[in-house]
């Protein structure tokens, strides 16, 4: 199976946070943005909502950092899987993640990381703006480059205006 990853496009996101709601409901059985695997942060200065989400990095600092072998890669989806019985909530994976993805579940004391919903991410399905995409690695790289280039050239506000 071709490896697919998530790519977020800040120029498309309107900050409705439906992704957070559906993600937490799917994984936790309750609607709770604080336990969502994808989380939005609004920045008034750049006028954007930026998603914190697992990029399924090629190198995996989170897995490397874990001294308890609590993190693995799913053989099919390549998602990072938390072995709940092994996690001791040491927070090492949280420290090393470049994208601030892992969070500690305050009720269970176990780390929460995106598992790609076993290959069909709920956030992608519900997003009304197609702001979060699930695509092949090569395609994903291209899209990420495109987004980064546009933003670094023009800044967020101008980039949006000329859309």
């Amino acid at each position: 199976m071709e490896q697919k990853v998530l790519v977020f496009d800040p120029e498309k996101c309107i900050g409705c946070r439906l992704c957070e709601k559906f993600c937490s409901l799917g994984h936790e059985g309750v609607i709770n943005p604080s336990k969502s695997r994808i989380r939005l942060q609004r920045d008034h200065l750049i006028q954007k909502d930026i998603a914190i989400y697992c990029h399924q990095c090629e190198t995996t600092p989170c897995i490397e950092a874990c001294q308890f072998d609590a993190l693995t890669r799913d053989s099919e989806t390549n998602a990072i899987i938390v072995k709940e019985e092994e996690c001791v909530a040491c927070g090492d994976c949280i420290q090393v993640c470049l994208y601030d993805v892992p969070i500690l579940d305050s009720d269970t004391d176990i780390v929460i990381i995106c598992d790609l919903c076993r290959g069909s991410p709920e956030c992608v399905e519900i997003c009304p703006e197609q702001a979060i995409n699930f695509m092949g690695l090569e395609e994903a790289k291209k899209l990420r480059n495109k987004i980064n280039k546009r933003i670094s050239q023009k800044g967020f506000k101008e980039a949006n205006k000329n859309e």
């Binding site: 309107i14 900050g15 409705c16 439906l18 954007k48 967020f156 506000k157 101008e158 949006n160």
Partner: peptide, 20 residues
């Protein structure tokens, strides 16, 4: 002046407008 669309919580319309 519009530089983007902005939603309130849980709204798929996004009638709010960022302006610049």
């Amino acid at each position: 002046i519009v530089s983007g669309d902005r939603s309130c919580f849980g709204c798929p319309i996004g009638c709010g407008k960022w302006t610049y």
